[in-house]
Design a protein around this nucleic acid. Structure first.
Length: 834
DNA sequence: ATACTTTCGATTTTT
DNA sequence: TCGAAAGTAT
C-alpha cells in the first residue's frame, strides 16, 4: 500500500509492534476480513449515515467537515477504534494529531472506552508538539542536538533574545525582545528558516538585523542544547527533508493519519503533515493513496491571527486528489432557533466550503435567540446577573451557564457584579499552570539540578530568592563562562575560588553552588518528590513566599504543592521535566456550581444550556483592530467567532449590546454590531429592557448606513428612543458622517458622548478621512484625528456638565474645568462654544 | 535593593 | 483612564 515493505523494523522502539488489542486480528489477515463480513460491530451503532461513512471510509484521503455539535470527536475516536478492531493497523501504526493536550487526553479516554483498556499502545496520539518532541528526541543528532535537549519557556526565550539584541549593540528599548520573539514565532509558524524569511521582514527589525538576530538565536539555542516551541515542528520538517531514509521509515510506519481541527493548522504543521502523508511516486508515476483523514470546520477557524491558514482546509481536495469530502450537518446540540441564527449569520461569509446545520428536534416551546440592549457595561452586567439568578432560582445549575466575551477586559464588569451578588463564577483561560511564576521558578531549580548545563535555568533562579547576586555578579559569570567556554554553573564554581568577586556575593554564590551540588548528589538516591520538596525548602524559595504579604502568596504555595504532587506520576525528576513543559494544564475544579466566564476563543469546543454573549457592538465585536488589520478576511474571522459563540448554546442564547462603553478611559457611544442585523428575524426575539435604566437607556441608536437600515429600527422598544429630538439629530448626523468617516483610531463611530447623555451635534466626523473600502464595502477606517477646533481657555458648553473652560487639548480630547461638575475629559464633539 | 515616578498601551492564545 | 512595567532616585 505504501510502496515500502510493511514490516520494516522501526528504530527498535519498544512502543512499536505492541501486540494489537485482544479482539483485533492481525492486520490484513483472514480473521480481519472475516470479521468485516460479519456485519456491523457494536461501536458503529448509533452513528448516523454520514458519521458512519466517515468512520468506514478508511482508505484514501478523507476530509470530514464537521459542523459545530455534529459529533466530530465521536467520529474521530470511532474511526480509530474501527481501524484497530478491523485489524487494519496496530495502534502504533496510527498517527493521530490534535492541537491541545486536552483534546488528546479526551481522545485517548474515549478510544479506551470503545476498544477496551488494551489501548495503552497508541504512542502516536498527541499534540503536534508532543509528537514533534518525540520525533526530535529520536533524531536530535541529525540537527546538531543532544537528545536530552531542553524546551525553552517564553521567559527564557525573551531573556535570551534580549541578550542577543544587546550583543548586537542595539537599544533593547527601541527593539523589544518580545517583538522579536513574536516575529520569530511567526516565521516558524510559516516554516521559514533564517535564510528563507522575506527581506522586508528581515529589515523591519533592529536596523535591518532581523535575519542576523534570528540566526544568532538559533545558533545560541544549539549551543544551549535547547529548542523553542516552534522548533518542535521546524526541526522535524528539516529532518524529513534532509534525510529521506528517516522519512521513509515514518512512511512505512504510519498507515493511517488522523488530524483534528484541521482548520487551525498553520503552514509549518501543514508542511509537516504533507511530508508524512505524501508518498513518493511509484515507478509508473502514480502516487500511492494516502490514508489521511482530516476533521475540521472552516466556519470555526478563529486562529488566523496566530498563523492558522484556513486555506489548508479549503484546499484539501487539491492537495489530496481523489479525496472524499464528508459533511456532518446533523446537529445534536442546539435548538432549531439557535441553529437557524448561527447558519444565517455565517452565511454572510464568502469563501467557505458550505454547510448548513440542521436538527430534527424541533420543539415549539424552544426559546428564540434573545437580543437585549443595555445602557452601558455595568447595566449589562447587572441585567445578566439578574437573569442568571432568576434561572438559578428556577433550578438551573450555574454550571450550565456561560458568559462569553470578545475581549478579556469585558470580564471585569461581570466579576465585580458577581462578587457583589455573591454569585459563584469561574474564569476559564488566563495564565496556564506551568506559566505561573512560582511554577517556572521551581522548575528552573529542578532543571539546574538535573542538568547542570542549563544556563537559562540558573540565570532564572540565581537571585530568587534574593541573595544579593545582582546584575554585576551575573555579568561576571557570563563573561567568565564565555571566556572559558563553560556552562554558567561551572563559571560560578570557578569564580568562588578566586578574588574576582566581592566577599559578600562570593559567599552567597558559594552557598548556592554547594547546595546545587548537594542536590545533584541526591538525584539518584532520593525519591524525586522528596528531593523536590527539599530543594524548594533549602533554597529558601518556600520561605520567600511564606514571608510574602501579597494576597497571591498563599495560592502560590498551594500551586507548588500541586506541582510536587503532580510529580508523583512520573518515574524520575528527569522524566517529569521532559513532559512538564508540554503537558501540564491548569486543573479547574468543577465540583463547585459556578457560572463560567471566558473569551469566545477559549469557548471553542464547549457547550452550555444557556449562553450570554455581551458586547455585540461595532468596534468591539467585530473588533476594530481585526477590521483595520485584517480587512475583509478579518471581518470574516470575527463572524466565525460570533458563529462559534452562538453554537455554544444548547437551549438559550442571549445576545447583548450596550449604547455606551468606556474605552481607554473615554466614554464612547457605540452602535450595535452588524452581526446582530445578520441574525434571521424568525429566530430572534428583541427583548425590552426591564431594568431601571429602561426607556431612554435601552435606546437603540439605529444603524449607520454602510449596512443599511436595521430591521430592528421598527421594533417598538427601539423606535421609541428615536422619538426624542436629540436622538433624531444624532442619527441624522451619524448617517451623514459615516459616509465620510468610519470612526477614529479608537475604533468607534462618529456618534460620541462625553459622559451621560448622547448628543452628537458636532460629531468628530466632520473630517474628510478616507475609510478603507474593500469591494465597495466600507470595512475599516484609517487613523486620523483632526486637531480640535477648541483651544485652551475657550469657554464651552456641554449638555450634561454645563459651562466650563478648556484646560487642555489633546487631539480631539478635551480636559475641561466645568463650573459645576469639576474637571472632566470629554471628546470635542460634545461641547460647543458657549 | 526598594520605593517612587514615568511611560506605555489597550484582542483573541496553544504548545 | 488605569494598570502594569520599566526606569530613577535614594
Amino acid at each position: 500500500m505504501t510502496g515500502y515493505p510493511d514490516d520494516l523494523p522501526f528504530f527498535g522502539d519498544d512502543d512499536d509492534f505492541v501486540p494489537a488489542p485482544a479482539p483485533a486480528p492481525r492486520p490484513g489477515g483472514i480473521a480481519a476480513r472475516a470479521q468485516a463480513a460479519r456485519g456491523a460491530p457494536r461501536y458503529l451503532e448509533g452513528l448516523n449515515p454520514e458519521q458512519r461513512l466517515a468512520v468506514e471510509t478508511t482508505e484514501g484521503p478523507v476530509l470530514v467537515l464537521a459542523g459545530a455539535g455534529t459529533g466530530k470527536t465521536r467520529v474521530l475516536t470511532t474511526r480509530i477504534a474501527h481501524i484497530l478492531a478491523s485489524g487494519l493497523a496496530y495502534p502504533s501504526q496510527i498517527l493521530a494529531v490534535t492541537f491541545t493536550n486536552k483534546a488528546a487526553r479526551e481522545m485517548k479516554a474515549r478510544i479506551g472506552i470503545l476498544v477496551g483498556e488494551a489501548i495503552e499502545g497508541m504512542p502516536w496520539l498527541g499534540t503536534f508538539h508532543s509528537i514533534g518532541v518525540k520525533m526530535l528526541r529520536r533524531h536530535a543528532e541529525l540537527v546538531g542536538l543532544n537528545s536530552n535537549f531542553t524546551i525553552l519557556d517564553t521567559d527564557d526565550q525573551i531573556r535570551l533574545l534580549k541578550q542577543l539584541i544587546q550583543a548586537e549593540g542595539l537599544d533593547d528599548k527601541r527593539w523589544p525582545a518580545r517583538q522579536l520573539a513574536g516575529m520569530i514565532d511567526a516565521w516558524k509558524n510559516k516554516g521559514l528558516s533564517p535564510a528563507e524569511i522575506p527581506e522586508g521582514d528581515a529589515r523591519s527589525f533592529g536596523n535591518g538585523k532581523g535575519r542576523q538576530l534570528y540566526q544568532a538565536y538559533q545558533d545560541r539555542l544549539k549551543t544551549l542544547n535547547a529548542v523553542d516551541f516552534g522548533d518542535l515542528l521546524m526541526l522535524p520538517i528539516r529532518i524529513f527533508r534532509e534525510h529521506a531514509d528517516v522519512l521513509r521509515e515514518y512512511h512505512s510506519k504510519f498507515r493511517y493519519i488522523l488530524v483534528d481541527e484541521y482548520q487551525d493548522t498553520n503552514t509549518a504543521q501543514y508542511m509537516w503533515l504533507r511530508l508524512l502523508a505524501q508518498r513518493p511516486a511509484l515507478p509508473d508515476g502514480s502516487r500511492p493513496a494516502v490514508n489521511i483523514c482530516c476533521v475540521g470546520d472552516d466556519d470555526q477557524s478563529i486562529y488566523g491571527w496566530r498563523g492558522a491558514e484556513v486555506d489548508n482546509i479549503l484546499r484539501f481536495e487539491k492537495d489530496f486528489p481523489g479525496a472524499k469530502v464528508i459533511r456532518l450537518e446533523r446537529n445534536y446540540r442546539s435548538t432549531a432557533h439557535i441553529l437557524g441564527a448561527a447558519s444565517h449569520l455565517i452565511a454572510h461569509n464568502e469563501g467557505r466550503l458550505g454547510k448548513t446545520l440542521f436538527t430534527d428536534r424541533g420543539d415549539p416551546d424552544d426559546a428564540r435567540v434573545k437580543v437585549h440592549a443595555a445602557w452601558d457595561s455595568d447595566e449589562e452586567a447587572r441585567a445578566i446577573g439578574e437573569e442568571i439568578e432568576a434561572l438559578q432560582s428556577k433550578g438551573h445549575a450555574l454550571n450550565d451557564m456561560a458568559i462569553l466575551v470578545r475581549a478579556s477586559f469585558q470580564m471585569r464588569a461581570f466579576e465585580e457584579r458577581f462578587i457583589t451578588l455573591g454569585l459563584n463564577y469561574r474564569v476559564i483561560g488566563g495564565p496556564r499552570f506551568y506559566e505561573r511564576q512560582e511554577i517556572r521558578d521551581a522548575l528552573a531549580y529542578f532543571r539546574i539540578v538535573s542538568q547542570g548545563s542549563d544556563d537559562l535555568a540558573l540565570e532564572r533562579i540565581i537571585n530568587v530568592p534574593k541573595r544579593g547576586l545582582g546584575e554585576a555578579a551575573l555579568r561576571l559569570m557570563h563573561d567568565t563562562a564565555r571566556a572559558r567556554n563553560t556552562s554558567l554553573l561551572q563559571a560560578a564554581r570557578d569564580l568562588i575560588g578566586t578574588e574576582e568577586m566581592k566577599p559578600k556575593p562570593r559567599a552567597a554564590l558559594r552557598a548556592l553552588v554547594e547546595s546545587i551540588e548537594r542536590w545533584q548528589g541526591m538525584l539518584d538516591r532520593t525519591p524525586h518528590t522528596e528531593l523536590a520538596e527539599l530543594i524548594l525548602e533549602e533554597s529558601g524559595y518556600v520561605d520567600m513566599w511564606k514571608n510574602d504579604r501579597s494576597p497571591e502568596a498563599p495560592g502560590r504555595l498551594e500551586n507548588l504543592k500541586e506541582l510536587i504532587s503532580n510529580m508523583e506520576g512520573y518515574e524520575s525528576m528527569r522524566a517529569f521535566l521532559e513532559h512538564v513543559s508540554l503537558v501540564m494544564d491548569a486543573e479547574q475544579n468543577d465540583d463547585q456550581d459556578a457560572v463560567s466566564l471566558m473569551t469566545l476563543h477559549s469557548a471553542k469546543g464547549l457547550e452550555f444550556d444557556t449562553v450570554f454573549l455581551p458586547g455585540w457592538e461595532e468596534g468591539l465585536f467585530p473588533h476594530q483592530r481585526a477590521l483595520d488589520e485584517g480587512g475583509r478576511a478579518g471581518l470574516e474571522e470575527e463572524r466565525r467567532l460570533a458563529y462559534v459563540g452562538v453554537t455554544r448554546a444548547k437551549k438559550n442564547l442571549h445576545i447583548w449590546f450596550t449604547s455606551n462603553r468606556r474605552i481607554h478611559g473615554l466614554w464612547q457611544s457605540t452602535i450595535p454590531s452588524r452581526f446582530i442585523d445578520e441574525l434571521p428575524e424568525e429566530h430572534v426575539e428583541v427583548v425590552e429592557s426591564g431594568s431601571s435604566y429602561g426607556g431612554y437607556g435601552s435606546g437603540y441608536p439605529g444603524r449607520p448606513n454602510p449596512y443599511g437600515a436595521s430591521r430592528f429600527d421598527d421594533t417598538p422598544v427601539f423606535s421609541n428612543s428615536y422619538s426624542t429630538p436629540g436622538w433624531q439629530r444624532a442619527q441624522r448626523n451619524r448617517n451623514e458622517a459615516t459616509q465620510r468617516n468610519w470612526g477614529n483610531r479608537s475604533g468607534h463611530q462618529v456618534e460620541r458622548i462625553g459622559y451621560g447623555e448622547p448628543d452628537s451635534g458636532y460629531g468628530a466626523g466632520r473630517g474628510s478621512f478616507k475609510g478603507k473600502v474593500i469591494e465597495g464595502e466600507l470595512v475599516a477606517k484609517s487613523v486620523a484625528t483632526e486637531p480640535s477646533r477648541f483651544k485652551v481657555g475657550d469657554r464651552v458648553f456641554h449638555l450634561k456638565f454645563g459651562n466650563g473652560n478648556v484646560a487642555a487639548v489633546d487631539g480631539n480630547k478635551l480636559t475641561i474645568d466645568f463650573d459645576k461638575a469639576g474637571q472632566k475629559r470629554v471628546l470635542d464633539g460634545f461641547v460647543q462654544p458657549a
